[in-house]
């Protein structure tokens, strides 16, 4: 990764133009050609440095439901339960964390009402309780990583 790749990552986390030739507009800022920018983005996606290139939606404003959920799973059951939980398409990401509540995942559903029913389905499938912790107030969101 060279300094231009780093500039692309830092800059394009902040937005992307909505105009006829957006890659050309950004390429001019980086001092490279349009095809060079497109190629670099292709490579970063291929190397999985980027998870996505496109829109970030606001789940609630799209009419969807979003929540952070946690479970407490015994170590010897963990791999099995993680597979069960991740088999639900509504589970967007899932991390193990070092706490009694050791599995943390984000649920994204098409309607807010679906959150409760998916939680129930997960509880039934796994036999473990799900702690539902939806966002109540946003103090700050700026998820951006400098490289």
């Amino acid at each position: 990764m060279d300094s231009i790749d780093r500039a692309i990552i830092n800059q394009l986390q902040g937005g992307f133009p909505i105009c006829e030739h957006p890659y050309q507009v950004m390429a001019d800022q980086f001092g490279i050609t349009e095809s060079d920018l497109i190629q670099r983005l292709e490579q970063m996606l291929e190397k999985k440095q980027l998870s996505r290139f496109g829109p970030m939606y606001h789940a609630e404003r799209l009419g969807g439901g979003l929540s952070l959920c946690a479970m407490s799973i015994p170590d010897d059951e963990f791999d099995h339960v993680v597979d069960q939980v991740n088999s639900f398409p509504e589970v967007a990401h899932n991390y193990a964390r070092d706490h009694e509540l050791n599995m943390w995942f984000v649920l994204a559903t098409e309607t807010p009402e679906r959150i409760d029913s998916v939680l129930e389905e997960i509880e039934q499938a796994t036999g473990y309780q799900v702690y539902n912790m939806p966002k109540q107030h946003e103090f700050y969101v700026g998820l951006k990583f400098e490289v």
């Binding site: 937005g15 909505i18 970030m56 939606y57 606001h58």
Partner: peptide, 8 residues
């Protein structure tokens, strides 16, 4: 749409 662009 919160923004267009990349998610790392």
């Amino acid at each position: 749409i919160k923004r267009m662009g990349i998610v790392v």
